[in-house]
Amino acid sequence: MDSHDVQSDLKHVLYTREQIADRIKELAAEIDRDYAGRDVLLVGVLKGAVMVMADLSRALHSHVSMDWMAVSSYGSGTQSSGVVRILKDLETDLLGKHVLIVEDIIDSGLTLSWLRTNLESRGPASVEICALLRKPAASKVDIDVKYVGYDIPNEFVVGYGLDFAEKYRNLDFIGTLAPHVYE
């Protein structure tokens, strides 16, 4: 699926497939440097982080383990509900592990703040965060994010794993959704 397939649903394209790939390679180089000599567990947050996790893991030059977690505070709307539910928990014991949470986007930060606290309570050696996108203007909590792909405006974005009502995830770019689609 490309921009021509959803042209009337988008305001504009924020990042192309090539721009995303280049930025993920840069993030992977930082992660490889920072975790040199240490085993890392990548924890992908479903469903949105699937694309980021796949491309980031392939761009890394070190061995990593992977696990997935699904948490929800959205439903099918555009605003966080503020209530976090675990839909799928990790299968990996975190005790003594270096954990890197991989996220597609940080909006309010409420869900991610909750998730970080939850994972830290499981006894890992460290917990850090890598997010492809962050919306500083939407932040409701202060959360330390070690690796950020792009800071973006407080607009509703789709593509590259990001959805609206389970649509648009399979776009190979990130675009701003036109308000007529979700209003």
Results as ranks from 00 to 15, higher is better:
D5H: 12
D5T: 11
D5Y: 03
D5N: 13
V6K: 00
V6T: 02
V6Y: 00
V6I: 07
Q7A: 13
Q7S: 13
Q7F: 04
S8P: 10
S8E: 10
S8A: 14
D9A: 15
D9P: 14
D9R: 13
D9C: 15
L10Y: 03
L10D: 00
L10V: 04
K11R: 13
K11Q: 11
K11F: 01
K11Y: 01
H12G: 11
H12W: 09
H12Q: 15
V13P: 06
V13M: 02
L14Q: 09
Y15I: 11
Y15Q: 11
T16G: 15
R17M: 08
R17A: 14
E18W: 04
E18S: 12
E18R: 12
E18H: 09
E18A: 13
Q19G: 02
Q19V: 03
I20T: 11
I20F: 11
A21L: 03
A21T: 06
D22T: 15
D22A: 15
D22M: 13
R23N: 06
R23G: 06
I24L: 15
I24P: 14
E26M: 13
E26V: 14
E26K: 15
E26D: 15
L27C: 09
L27G: 07
L27H: 02
L27S: 05
A28Y: 00
A28D: 05
A29C: 05
A29R: 12
A29L: 02
E30R: 14
E30A: 11
E30D: 13
I31D: 04
I31M: 06
I31Q: 09
I31A: 09
I31V: 11
I31P: 04
D32C: 08
D32E: 05
R33Q: 10
R33H: 12
D34L: 03
D34G: 08
D34Y: 07
Y35F: 08
A36G: 09
A36C: 11
A36Q: 14
A36L: 13
G37Q: 02
G37S: 05
G37W: 03
G37D: 04
G37A: 05
R38A: 10
R38F: 02
D39Q: 10
D39N: 10
V40S: 06
V40W: 04
V40E: 01
V40L: 14
V40Y: 03
L41I: 07
L41S: 10
L41G: 11
L42R: 08
L42T: 03
L42I: 10
V43K: 05
V43F: 00
V43M: 01
G44H: 05
G44W: 05
G44I: 01
G44C: 08
G44N: 11
V45R: 07
V45N: 04
V45Y: 02
L46W: 00
L46S: 08
L46P: 06
K47D: 04
K47F: 03
K47W: 00
K47L: 02
K47R: 12
K47P: 02
G48N: 10
G48M: 06
G48W: 07
G48D: 06
A49P: 03
A49K: 00
